[in-house]
Simulated scan of single mutants.
Amino acid sequence: MNSVAYLPQSKRLLEQVSEVLRYKHYSLKTEQAYLYWVRFFVRWHGRDGQMRHPRSMDGAEVTQFLTMLANERRVSV
């Protein structure tokens, strides 16, 4: 079951994220925070010079990212 009833019209990832968040009536500050973390996730995985779309990533990349946040950046769960 898809939790998003709205299909974004945009082709760009960050614009799609913004569209869905606005459709769900999230606050502007929340939208900005989500966009920050999406950018950070994509750039962190592209640090070797090869950017990939999050759609082409799997659970391993997410686990690596969350582990880095917990261990190196000391971000709270």
Rank of each mutant, 00 (worst) to 15 (best):
N2Y: 12
V4F: 13
A5L: 08
Y6L: 01
L7R: 13
L7C: 10
L7G: 13
P8H: 04
Q9Y: 06
S10H: 10
S10Y: 03
S10G: 11
K11T: 01
R12V: 05
L14C: 05
V17Y: 14
S18P: 01
E19T: 10
R22M: 04
Y23R: 01
Y23V: 02
K24D: 13
K24P: 14
H25A: 14
Y26V: 00
Y26D: 00
S27H: 10
L28A: 14
K29L: 11
K29A: 09
K29H: 13
Q32G: 02
A33T: 12
L35H: 09
L35G: 08
L35K: 06
L35T: 00
Y36M: 06
Y36S: 07
Y36L: 12
W37L: 03
W37T: 02
W37C: 09
V38W: 11
R39I: 01
F40L: 07
F41N: 00
F41H: 00
F41Q: 00
V42F: 09
V42E: 10
R43S: 09
R43C: 03
W44T: 00
W44F: 14
H45M: 04
R47A: 12
G49F: 11
Q50K: 13
Q50W: 09
Q50E: 11
M51D: 13
M51N: 06
R52W: 07
H53C: 04
H53I: 01
R55C: 09
R55L: 03
R55T: 02
R55M: 05
S56G: 05
M57G: 01
M57T: 02
D58T: 06
D58F: 03
G59S: 08
T63V: 12
T63A: 15
T63W: 14
Q64K: 11
F65W: 11
M68D: 11
L69H: 07
L69P: 06
L69E: 04
N71C: 14
E72M: 05
R73G: 03
V75T: 11
V77Q: 09
